[in-house]
Each structure stands twice: as structure tokens, then as C-alpha cells.
Design a protein around this nucleic acid. Structure first.
Length: 593
RNA sequence: GCAUCCAUAGCUCAGCUGGAUAGAGCAACGGUUUUCUAAACCGUAGGUCAUAGGUUCGAAUCCUAUUGGGUGUACCA
């Protein structure tokens, strides 16, 4: 039993003994004692006052006396207004450290038997990935890793949007103006090459619209009548009919994109257990619509279109099948949700998708619930905010996007410059150096994007480079590298186990308390699907360690062997947590930097 | 219009199921290296927690309204 549980139980007993009242456990409110007061754990006594019928000060004092008398580890108390500050014996903290934190499986949360799917990335195959996708990918990856680390069995899946009118636009433009250009001939990455034609399409399309407007058509008509868009629509129909030439072009160009994506994914360090392709799933969902009609959840309008009325739930009427019997977006998603569940039988399913689709997922989940899918309650939309530039939104057609590949390359380059300026790794081989720059540059980027709460929008200023100091990825990486260097120089031997007979410094005690929270932090962060929460915790750990490191005389030179070993133990546990926590964020911590 | 999210220091962000004098980083200013990596540490300065009510012993946190901003509201995806 840990000390917090012990205190809670004893407080309940104390209230019974002192005031003959039954206080519910949730009324016993514990918190860490603020640094300016004596003690480590504080009971907020206001809730207890209701049972004691005495003033907060008197209640706190009586409670304090009882706890000191009944709990061996509590050696003293003080009362400040309505707060009862308890001093826990160093022997308890040292024991906690030696028994729990030093154990090799510390931080490993046991499996909880729950299966969860995380769908993320889900790119379109008509253009390369940009900064917005980067946030999606890092978030999806790290949430999946976080869920794994907190005991879930996790499947990462990627639902690729590989068909549709936007894909045809790139294909058509390439056919018309590409002159047979390939990634090999142009030396362009496949996804960038295809994206180039997507932009060309848009440019030519706009020209046609302008021309038609000059002939007197309205903007709306012009958009519909432009020959290019008609051709693209024709191409989409041909694709749906399996036209050989179109299919062949589609496969070729998508192949280029996949080659390009594979490189980007590899650099980002994300992976998937399974890919779904919309070209295989876009016809799904019609069965679900039938099912809904039979169950009376959906209704048919005279023109044959199928709807669901969600006005009673504060939403609107929603179309689920067109009058001509073809699918809309939500039709596919209904079918795909069913298929994913049939494939994996997971308990929970996460969709990592931007907040512009909040309404869509609300509707989707509600429909599945109304259809009586028992698994619908396990569906969750992990909604995240847009990444904005100082100039506003990124628009791929207007060329104001921050390209993922470019950005990552720039980050690595910046890492290189900063590292070279410090001149600490001149003895590294070229390969080691490249590896290090990669880790630091991407570490800075990933931490920058992940430390912000997912639902908040994120401002990225390309003119202002991402920091490498303070609350950043490199700061945490540096702390880790520094510890590793320390352990090496001091000849740290983990086998020696825990040190006894040590007097803890205040910061050491704080370290132990903070480090001990790691497993609870993992579970809490996973529960709210927030890598940001973990990121901030890791920052606290690194910051406190650095304080400790500066406060204490050089550990390497410490003559008291037991004290030296103890401080190395604290350092080693810190390094272990930083490493495993950062790995969950998708960030590699170097041994040296 | 309706729905929904956001609003905390000059800037970027923390702030757990309501709890003590609201915390970090960056930027600014001042200090720390004959000591284990100064990508570090210590200090100074910086706030009517958008506004107004309400609930409560206690509100940045919960409720209501208002203001400002984002997003959505297609037989697009």
C-alpha cells in the first residue's frame, strides 16, 4: 500500500474515531505540499470540517495528531489555514525508490486486455504531406504508443484516400501536360511530382473559369462548365467502370505517391499495422443503409434518397444514400466502421482527424448507436486543431503550405548547425553525426507539435525557427545524454541495488516523488489521449533533474560510496523514464550530444 | 441564423476530479564554468486568468449571458 492510500484510509478511521462520522473516501482530498511549506503531502481539511463540526484549524490539528500517532511513516505535521501538511519520513521515500523505482519493470503497466484501434494519417494520394499532416501523424503515432504503454493492445491503421475526383485532377493534368514525366526523369519525389500536376490542374481550371466568365457565364456556371472539370468527372466515371487505360495510369501515379509517402513516413518514424484503401471500401455501407431502413432508423424520401432524422438529438437531417443509389462520404464510413470492427473486434476505436470534421463524426457515431451497434460506444474522434501560419490557413492550391519533407530537412539542418557550433561531437563518425542531427532536428519538431493539447490550434511561424532551449525536445534529449555521460564516467553499476542510510536532500525527495508518478502519468495521459500531458511531465522531470545536478557536488568525485551510488541510481532512473517516455512521443534520445 | 471549439505574462504554452500568494519556456535584464556536457543552472521584471453575473467555505477550473476568434452547417471528401 502506498502512503497516499494509507493516509486516506487512516483519515477515514480518524474521522470515525474522533467525530463518530463516516466520511466518504472521495471527500478525503490529498495534494502535493507546496514548496514553501514543510511536508510532502497535504490534506485539504475543508471537506472534513462538515463532519467534525469544528473549525478548519482545530480539525486539522486533531487529524494531524491522530495521523502521526497511527502512521509510522508520518513524523510531523503543521497546519496552515485549512491545510494539514504532513511530513513523511525519508526512510519511506528511500524505500519507495529502492523497492519500486529501481525495479527493472518500473514503468511497465500490465496488460489490461483491451484492444484499441488507432486510425491516423489517412492521406490523399494527390499531393505530398504538409505540416497539418505532420501533426496528425505524430499525434496518431504517439497516442497509439501511449495506449500500448498503458496496457492496451493496439492496432494502427491507415485509411488511404486513393480515389476520387481530386485524384483524377492530378492524373488528367499529367496526361495533358506531363510529357511522360516520371520521378526518375524529373528527379522529383513521387508524391511531389503528382502534387505538381494537381497544382497545374487548378491553374488551368481557373483560366478556363475566367474565360467562361468573360463570355458572360456566372462563376457558378463557369465552374461546372469548364471543359477540364468535365473531363476529370468523365475520368472518374471511367475509373469506376474499370477502364483499362485510366486504371493503369491511376496505379502508376498512385505508385509514385506511395513511394514518396514511404520515405516521408520513414523519416517521421511512423508505422501502421494495416492499410485500408478507399478504392476497396468506397462501395461499402449500402448494406448498412438497408439494415437501417429495415430497422426504421432511416427513411426514404419520394425521390429514393435515404435519410436519417437527427433533429431530436439537436442535429439535422442527414443524407445517407443519394437518390441514384450511390454513396456519400458517410455511407462509406458506416460500412468501413463495420468492416474494421469485423476485422479486429476491438473494444475502442480512435479516429485521429482534424476538428473540421467534428460534426461528421458526431453524426457517424450517433447513427451507429441508433443502428444498435454495441461497439459504437467505443468509437472516439480524436479531434485536433488546425496548424495555422502567421498569414492564416495553409492552402495547398495557393502554395502557402509548409511541406513535410522540406520542414523535416530544415529541422535536421538547423540541428546540424547548432550542434557543430557547440563542437561537442567532433569525434563522431559521419554516420553517427547524421544520425544525431536527425534525432535532434526531429526531436525538436515532434516535441514542438506534441506538447500542445491536441484540441488547441497551433501557430507555426516558419520565419521563427523552433527553439532548442527551454521547454523543447532537445532540452530533454540533452538531459538524457548528460546523464548517460555521467553514469559512464562514474562507473555506475546498477546491480548494486539500492543504497541505505542516506539523508535525502529536498530536491532528491522531490525527484523521487516526481519519478514515482510515471506509471500513473502514462495511464492518465492515455485516458485522455494526450501525448501533451506526457510531454509536459517529461519536461518537469528533466528540469528537476538539472536542478538536482547543479545543486549537488560533482557525483563522480563523491567519496561516500553509498551516497554516490544513490545519486547515480536517481540519475539512472531519470534517464530511463526520459528514454521510455520520449520513445512514446516518437522521439529518440541520444547517448551523447 | 444554428451547432461546436478556443480565449491565462509582450510571444508560445502548463495549470489534475473546484483548494493555499496562478506556473514554465522564449524574448528583456543581472549572475554562475580551475567541479560530472553552459542545448544547463540561479535571480530580477512581467497577470483585473476576455467581460459580467451565478453556485460554493473556496472558481483560471463548474453554470448562464456577452464579446472576440476558429471550424462546421453540400445528394464534396
Amino acid at each position: 500500500m502506498n502512503i497516499e492510500q494509507h493516509i486516506t484510509t487512516a483519515t477515514i478511521a480518524a474521522v470515525k474515531h474522533l467525530y463518530d462520522q463516516e466520511i466518504p473516501e472521495n471527500q478525503v482530498s490529498l495534494q502535493d505540499t507546496r514548496a514553501e511549506f514543510e511536508g510532502q503531502i497535504t490534506i485539504v481539511v475543508f471537506p472534513v470540517v462538515r463532519f467534525s463540526k469544528k473549525s478548519p484549524e482545530v480539525t486539522a490539528t486533531e487529524l494531524g495528531e491522530y495521523l502521526v500517532a497511527h502512521i509510522e511513516e508520518i513524523t510531523a505535521f503543521n497546519v496552515v489555514k485549512g491545510f494539514l501538511n504532513l511530513t513523511v519520513a525519508d526512510s519511506y521515500w528511500l524505500n519507495l525508490f529502492n523497492q519500486k523505482l529501481l525495479s527493472p519493470d518500473f514503468g511497465a503497466v500490465p496488460a489490461n486486455g483491451k484492444k484499441v484501434m488507432v486510425e491516423y494519417s489517412s492521406p490523399n494520394t494527390n499531393k505530398p504531406l504538409h505540416l497539418g499532416h505532420v501533426r496528425n501523424n505524430l499525434l496518431g503515432y504517439s497516442v497509439a504508443e501511449l495506449l500500448k504503454a498503458s496496457g492496451h493492445e493496439v492496432y494502427k491503421v491507415n485509411l488511404v484516400n486513393d480515389r476520387g475526383i481530386h485524384i483524377c485532377k492530378s492524373m488528367l493534368a499529367w496526361q495533358k501536360w506531363g510529357n511522360g514525366e516520371t520521378p526518375e526523369s524529373s528527379l522529383l519525389k513521387g508524391d511531389h511530382l503528382v502534387g505538381k500536376y494537381y497544382v497545374i490542374f487548378d491553374k488551368e481550371y481557373k483560366k478556363e473559369i475566367e474565360a467562361l466568365k468573360a463570355e458572360g457565364q456566372t462563376e457558378e456556371d463557369a465552374k461546372k462548365n469548364a471543359p477540364l472539370i468535365k473531363e476529370a468527372q468523365k475520368m472518374l466515371l471511367d475509373w469506376e467502370n474499370g477502364d483499362e487505360a485510366v486504371m493503369s495510369l491511376w496505379k502508376t501515379m498512385n505508385g509514385w505517391v506511395y513511394d514518396g509517402f514511404a520515405v516521408t513516413y520513414k523519416t517521421m518514424g511512423v508505422d501502421f499495422d494495416k492499410y485500408y484503401y478507399e478504392s476497396n471500401t468506397y462501395l461499402l455501407g449500402k448494406g448498412t443503409v438497408e439494415e437501417g431502413l429495415e430497422k426504421g432508423v432511416f427513411f426514404k424520401k419520394p425521390d429514393g434518397s435515404v435519410w436519417i432524422d437527427l433533429t431530436a438529438d439537436g442535429l439535422d437531417q442527414k443524407l445517407v444514400l443519394r437518390a441514384d443509389g450511390t454513396s456519400v462520404y458517410i455511407t462509406q464510413d458506416l460500412g468501413t466502421a463495420q468492416m474494421k470492427h469485423d476485422d479486429f473486434q476491438m473494444d475502442d476505436s480512435l479516429y485521429v482527424v482534424g476538428n473540421e470534421q467534428d460534426y461528421h463524426f458526431k453524426v457517424l457515431f450517433l447513427i451507429l448507436e441508433k443502428l444498435g451497434k454495441t461497439w459504437a460506444k467505443g468509437l472516439h474522434h480524436l479531434s485536433y486543431g488546425m496548424v495555422d501560419l502567421p498569414s492564416g490557413k495553409m492552402k495547398s492550391r495557393e502554395g502557402t503550405v509548409v511541406d513535410a519533407d522540406d520542414l523535416m530537412a530544415e529541422m535536421v539542418e538547423t540541428a546540424k548547425q547548432k550542434t557543430e557550433a557547440l563542437g561537442k561531437v567532433n569525434d563522431f563518425s559521419e554516420e553517427e553525426k547524421e544520425n544525431l542531427y536527425q534525432n535532434i532536428g526531429l526531436g525538436a519538431l515532434k516535441y514542438f507539435l506534441l506538447k500542445v493539447e491536441p484540441k488547441k490550434r497551433l501557430l507555426f511561424d516558419p520565419a521563427e525557427s523552433i527553439d532548442f532551449q527551454g521547454n523543447t525536445g532537445p532540452f530533454i534529449q540533452y538531459t538524457h545524454a548528460r546523464i548517460k555521460s555521467l553514469l559512464g564516467k562514474a562507473g555506475y553499476d546498477p546491480v548494486k541495488g539500492g543504497a541505505k542510510n542516506i539523508v535525502l536532500t529536498g530536491t532528491e525527495r522531490e525527484m523521487i516523488m516526481l519519478l514515482a508518478k510515471y506509471p500513473a502519468e502514462l495511464i492518465a495521459a492515455a485516458k485522455v489521449y494526450s501525448p501533451a500531458s506526457l510531454a509536459n511531465y517529461l519536461y518537469e522531470v528533466a528540469k528537476l533533474f538539472n536542478k538536482f545536478y547543479h545543486e549537488v557536488p560533482p557525483i563522480v568525485k563523491e567519496e561516500d560510496e553509498e551516497l554516490k551510488h544513490h545519486r547515480l541510481n536517481i540519475s539512472a532512473v531519470t534517464a530511463g523514464i526520459l528514454k521510455s517516455g520520449m520513445r512514446i512521443l516518437g522521439i529518440t534520445v541520444p547517448e551523447r550530444m
